[in-house]
């Protein structure tokens, strides 16, 4: 459910509403950002920038245009991509070790952490490799259908339906 009342209060610059929205979405946004910048320290910087934008630009959100979560996603992905393109970022991370969100599981196994790959394993185990790539590009990275079709070399017309069936496999097992 979308927290419509909180969003309304946020637009009125209500700090309590902002605090609640932060609590609701910060982990999701952090996951999205970290998947793009691939560095926790940098992701923390971007996360703060994103929530400052959420506060300053809450006026620009309208439910007529879409979901509040979608609005947050766009701000987060854009901020993270901007950071990746910045000089400071390029200086810090010369090259990345991983391609998509499933990397976090391998990382986690190596470290033998107590958590199960941030709870990610249960998702990735359900997904075919192509599904991991599709969801990574579309949801996490915000690629358009055309960009996904070119990157993964699959017909443009099938991107939508393939993505749905990938997501469905998650919904069936987890929902």
């Amino acid at each position: 459910m979308q927290p419509d009342e909180l969003i309304l209060q946020l637009k009125k610059q209500n700090e309590v509403a902002f605090s609640q929205i932060y609590d609701m979405y910060s982990e999701n946004i952090f996951g999205i950002i970290n998947n793009i910048v691939k560095d926790v320290e940098i992701a923390e910087e971007v996360l703060q920038d994103v929530f400052i934008k959420v506060w300053n630009k809450s006026d620009s959100y309208s439910s007529d245009k879409g979901r509040f979560f979608t609005w947050l996603l766009n701000i987060s992905r854009n901020a993270a991509i901007d950071k990746v393109r910045s000089k400071a970022y390029k200086n810090k991370l010369k090259n990345s070790d991983f391609d998509d969100f499933s990397f976090f599981i391998k990382d986690d196994m190596d470290l033998d952490s107590q958590s199960d790959g941030y709870g990610l394993r249960k998702f990735v185990d359900k997904l075919k490799p192509m599904c991991v790539k599709l969801i990574d590009l579309l949801f996490f990275k915000g690629y358009t259908q055309k960009e996904v079709s070119e990157t993964l070399d699959i017909p443009l017309g099938t991107v939508k339906s393939r993505n749905r069936s990938c997501l469905n496999s998650l919904r069936e097992t987890l929902g």
Partner: peptide, 16 residues
């Protein structure tokens, strides 16, 4: 759809 995406994205967070 949003619910599953919230779960998925939360699962990729290293923890704020």
């Amino acid at each position: 759809i949003e619910t599953i995406l919230l779960e998925l994205s939360k699962a990729t967070s290293p923890g704020v």
